[in-house]
């Protein structure tokens, strides 16, 4: 599957940008119509929407692949303004800053490890209970 998509020519950059802009535009509309108590940001709606468009074969992967890959590669940089925005809230650090930073560091590690280990445990259990054939499992490992 991978080789197939690489052989096909990707759509021109502006066409790819047009698709992203159109998906975001519709997503913003959906996001705005969500109730206040259940917020779904534009970007999350857009991710689901673009995924559905790809899965339902309404748009082809080569129409969105190369621009998307480039954007994902930039995320580290795109996040810099969020980091610097802490400059507006330095007051928080005065009250219980060190404690907060300690909790946040530990929480990050907890979230990573708990999620990963829970998944590993449930995958093991599901394979025991439902006797999945292990053939596909191996194949997907090799793909990686």
């Amino acid at each position: 599957m991978k080789n197939e998509t690489q052989e096909k020519k990707s759509a021109p950059l502006l066409v790819q940008m047009l698709i992203y802009a159109a998906v975001l535009f519709v997503s913003q509309f959906i996001s705005n119509s969500m109730p206040k108590s259940f917020p779904l940001p534009t970007a999350v709606v857009g991710l689901v929407l673009l995924y559905l468009l790809l899965t339902l074969h309404i748009i082809k992967v080569e129409w969105v692949d190369s621009f998307g890959g480039a954007m994902i590669g930039l995320i580290g940089f795109l996040f810099v303004p969020s980091g610097i925005s802490l400059a507006a809230n330095l007051k928080i650090m005065h009250d219980e800053g060190i404690k907060l930073v300690i909790v946040i560091i530990l929480a990050t590690i907890v979230l990573l490890v708990v999620t990963a280990y829970t998944t590993r445990l449930l995958l093991l259990l599901s394979e025991k209970w439902f006797h999945h054939d292990s053939g596909m499992e191996k194949q997907s490992q090799e793909d990686k």
């Binding site: 599957m1 991978k2 998509t5 940008m17 992203y20 802009a21 998906v23 975001l24 997503s27 534009t42 970007a43 999350v44 857009g46 991710l47 689901v48 929407l49 673009l50 995924y51 468009l53 790809l54 899965t55 992967v61 969105v64 692949d65 621009f67 998307g68 890959g69 954007m71 994902i72 930039l74 995320i75 940089f77 795109l78 996040f79 810099v80 303004p81 969020s82």
Partner: peptide, 19 residues
């Protein structure tokens, strides 16, 4: 201005997901 581009960058994860 930079922050705004996190929008298209986030929805771009639909591609690796689809694959």
């Amino acid at each position: 201005l930079i922050f705004w581009f996190l929008n298209p960058a986030t929805i771009a994860f639909a591609v690796p997901l689809y694959k």
